[in-house]
Design a protein around this nucleic acid. Structure first.
Length: 131
DNA sequence: ACAGTGACAACAT
DNA sequence: TATGTTGCCACTG
């Protein structure tokens, strides 16, 4: 646990949101950062997903659809990684998402609507806010 | 405590 | 459209 007591850390929040992305849809690092109230933390979102490779042995993180997160241009962003973006494209296609040769995805068709404020509250704080 | 790092994003060429 | 540059943020040793 990289956690400090009860406060859910940013990574966990990212994972919680990513888990909500339905099959056949995609979102972007920046959008997820926005949902969590940190519009400038897109990079940290990518870092959070990158950290999953070190936790692949932990079943608690095995169900995170990391492949559904791409960059703001609607393009797969891990082209230079050894694991290859090919895998990501392949998985997305198997989920019904059309990925072009240039690794582009049409946001008009596949962009996930995201979560509502109340749902974010629940993810971040564990329960509905009293308002 | 501090500097380095990275699966980003926005803007300039 | 394709690069390059700069600003950002959370996490790590």
């Amino acid at each position: 646990m990289t956690n400090s007591e009860n406060a859910p850390n940013f990574y966990e929040q990212v994972y919680a949101v990513v888990r909500r992305i339905p099959r056949g849809k995609v979102s972007s690092y920046g959008r997820i950062a926005n949902m969590l109230g940190r519009p400038r933390a897109a990079r940290a979102v990518g870092y959070a997903l990158n950290a999953l490779k070190d936790r692949k042995d932990d079943l608690a993180y095995a169900d995170i659809p990391w492949q559904r997160v791409i960059n703001s241009q609607g393009r797969i962003s891990i082209i230079n990684r050894e694991n290859s973006a090919h895998d990501q494209a392949t998985i997305l296609r198997s989920e019904g998402v059309s990925v072009s040769e240039t690794l582009h995805v049409d946001f008009d068709k596949y962009l996930w609507g995201g979560l509502h404020w109340a749902e974010i509250e629940e993810l971040v704080y564990g329960r509905s806010s009293p308002l």
